Simulated scan of single mutants.
Amino acid sequence: MFDAARQRHGDQQWWLIFSGIEAGNGTGDSVDLARATRIAAAFTEPYRFAAVTTAGFYDDAGFCGPCDAPYCHRHWNVSNTG
């Protein structure tokens, strides 16, 4: 996948490649330096909702605000089979 992303975006750009519990974004999306910096800062340990939400992902990268945890059982309606 990395080679496909390199062909699509070139060597001089930042790109975001992710895979989630249900889907991903394939060969990635171009991001500018400002967004790449926000994402890197948002996912610096310790992981907290207040920081993660600044990355600008539509689902806050799966973090639950009330629980300050990723994919919490109470609010994310996780099934018994995962």
Score class of each variant (00 low, 15 high):
residue 22 E to R: 15
residue 49 F to N: 02
residue 25 N to R: 00
residue 30 S to P: 01
residue 55 A to S: 14
residue 18 F to Q: 06
residue 53 T to S: 04
residue 46 P to I: 13
residue 23 A to Q: 12
residue 79 S to M: 01
residue 33 L to V: 04
residue 65 G to M: 08
residue 63 F to A: 12
residue 58 Y to E: 14
residue 18 F to Y: 14
residue 32 D to C: 12
residue 70 P to T: 07
residue 45 E to P: 14
residue 21 I to H: 09
residue 15 W to P: 00
residue 44 T to Q: 15
residue 79 S to A: 09
residue 44 T to Y: 06
residue 30 S to D: 04
residue 61 A to M: 12
residue 33 L to M: 02
residue 67 C to N: 08
residue 21 I to L: 14
residue 20 G to H: 12
residue 33 L to R: 08
residue 43 F to Q: 10
residue 72 C to L: 08
residue 26 G to Y: 03
residue 15 W to F: 12
residue 3 D to N: 09
residue 16 L to A: 08
residue 23 A to N: 12
residue 49 F to T: 03
residue 21 I to W: 10
residue 57 F to T: 02
residue 43 F to T: 12
residue 17 I to G: 00
residue 78 V to C: 01
residue 78 V to T: 04
residue 24 G to Q: 09
residue 34 A to K: 06
residue 63 F to E: 07
residue 13 Q to L: 05
residue 9 H to L: 09
residue 31 V to Q: 03
residue 38 R to G: 00
residue 51 A to G: 03
residue 78 V to L: 11
residue 35 R to P: 00
residue 37 T to W: 08
residue 1 M to V: 13
residue 16 L to G: 01
residue 31 V to M: 13
residue 28 G to P: 01
residue 20 G to A: 12
residue 45 E to L: 15
residue 66 P to S: 14
residue 21 I to Q: 07
residue 35 R to H: 12
residue 12 Q to E: 15
residue 43 F to G: 08
residue 42 A to V: 02
residue 29 D to A: 09
residue 71 Y to F: 15
residue 30 S to W: 08
residue 30 S to C: 08
residue 7 Q to V: 03
residue 17 I to Y: 01
residue 49 F to A: 13
residue 31 V to T: 10
residue 75 H to D: 04
residue 11 D to Q: 05
residue 23 A to V: 04
residue 57 F to S: 13
residue 3 D to Q: 10
residue 74 R to N: 02
residue 74 R to T: 14
residue 44 T to N: 07
